[in-house]
Structures are given as C-alpha cells and as structure tokens.
Amino acid sequence: MDILIISFSNSDYDRAAQGVAGAGRNLATVLGGRLRAVVIGPGNAAMNSRLAAVADEVIVADQAELAEYQPEIFLQALTSICRDAAPAAVLFGNDTYSQELAPRLAHRLSGSAAGDGIELAVDNGAIRVRRSVYGGKAVATIELKRSPAVLWLRARAFEPAPEKDSATAAITRPAVDLSMRAPTQIIERKSEGAGEARLEDARVIISGGRGLGGPEPFADLQDVAGLIGAQLAASRAACDSGWCPPSWQVGQTGKKVAPGLYIAVAIRGASQHMAGISDARVIAAINIDADAPIFKHCRFGIVEDYKNVIPLLKEKLAALQR
C-alpha cells in the first residue's frame, strides 16, 4: 500500500518537509508500497523537483482555487486526492495548516488520525505512532484502528529522505473539482518576524520566561542572539503576559523546536515547556534557582540572576567571536 506525504507549497522543502519525506520513505519500504508526494498550493516548481528526487511520484495540486490557503477548499482537494490514491497512510508535518486539516481529513476518509508523532512503526500490518503525552511526562504508543492512518509528525525528529538512484519521479496534476462555495474565507494574513527562519528550523534558540519580569529584557536577549546567530523564543508565561508575540511560544502548547542548542533564560522548566524542547540536542540554562526543574534537562548551566549574567555574557561572547 502506498504512502502519501503532504507538503504545502507556501513553504520550502525545509527540514520539516524532509523529515516527513524520510518517515514516508521508511513506511513505504516496510509496507512495500510507493512513496507519493502531494504538493498543494500555488505553483512551487523548486519544491516539486526536490520531492521528485526523493518520492516515486509527485502529485501537484496548484489549480487557481488553491492559490492561497483556505481550510475548506484545501480539505476538499486533499480529500479528493487521498480518495483516489487510497493510501495506507497520509503524513503531514506539524505546522498550523497540517494540524488543522489532518483530523478532518481522517474523518472524511473514514481513517484515524494521530498527531505530534516522534516515531512510526508497523506491527502486524497496523501503523503505530509514538508521541509524548501528559505534557511530556510520558510517552505513549498508539495503534491506529482505521485506514488510512492520517498522521502529523514532529517532522524534525525524522531523518530526511535519501535521494533516489533512479530517475526523478513523474509529476502529475489531477483535476480536482473545487467549485464549492467556502463557508469560511481567510481575508488577511500577517507574518511576524518576516525573513527570519521558522523557529522550528532554528539551529540555536535563546528563550525567555516568566523570571524576566517584563518585555524589556527581550531586547537584551536579542543582542545575545545576534552574537551567536540564535532566534528568540519564550515560555507560555512570557507570551501570556504579552511580553512577546504568541508565535514565539515554545512548549507543549506552542512550537515544538529541535535546535542544536537551546538556552533557557529565567525559565523554570515546567514539563509543559520541556515538552516543546525534547528534541533539542543541548539545553543550557540561566536561572537564579539551583532547584529549578530546567537544570535536570541541561547539559550545562549557571545559577545566577539573569540580570547579572546577560551584560557580561554579551561582552564575553563578543570577545570570543572576535
């Protein structure tokens, strides 16, 4: 049985898309099926050709009605494509649009959905997903009982798909009837921090929490970030206090990030927050309290009021970078 992977053409063939493709290739190999990539949204030739190098077929849905993301229309298009393909599994990344559509798509296909997967396996023909639960305090394995399995994955937890030795895949463009009147219509979009890489793709993240006490210290963190090529993030407490945009939020209920280095500043490290950074390679922390749970996850740390650390840290990093 075939595996479908879904990519939205408004993003690139980034690390997340590569991870989804990698997960899809492994599953297709185990199940003895083809890996078929669906690219939905406005035409993105670069993405189509990157996917053609790793998948066995690329299905492009770029007709005029799909020029911009509209949930009901995209859902209709994916439903139609998936019905025709009759796959064993449909794999998404864990971006907004994927999470929005996956459960509904599963329902329309009479399949089962599960999200935020960090591992996939096949047991007696049934697809199983591992995901973290209870705010990251536990990990569960879930077996999907209906087919197809519609899964959204913590995509960076999966190795990228290898390029094929054989010729690149054929690109097909099925005609999908989308002449529907959508009851919802997205009428305005705004990106914050345009030009910056997505937080999920960041190699280094410096993140601020409740202990910062206000929005001003984020300016200092920005200076540190600038010195080491890091991106800024925040805990839920800092976002809820309005100190920074909600799109910076990292945690069970925010972004799930996977940087090489995550520096937590004045973040205590509730399991809710840790659930968002469990894929970080190295965690470091600056915290005034040696007993803060964050230190249990850290490779290295400093126990000190961040206010005393940050100005010095800026100096030291600047000197070391020279």
């Binding site: 907004t96 979009r189 809820d240 799109s247």
Partner: peptide
C-alpha cells in the same frame, strides 16, 4: 494564530473553532 503570525477569516455560522491562548 499561524506558525509565524496570524490570519483573519470571515465565516458564516454555524462554525466550530478551536481556541488557543493569547494575552
């Protein structure tokens, strides 16, 4: 909220929305 910002939609009712937190 979206991954890197926000979107505004116009919708008829009935409608289901899932709510996330903000300040």
């Amino acid at each position: 909220q979206t991954d890197n910002g926000w979107e505004k939609a116009r919708s008829t009712t009935p409608l289901v929305v899932t709510i996330t937190n903000n300040e």
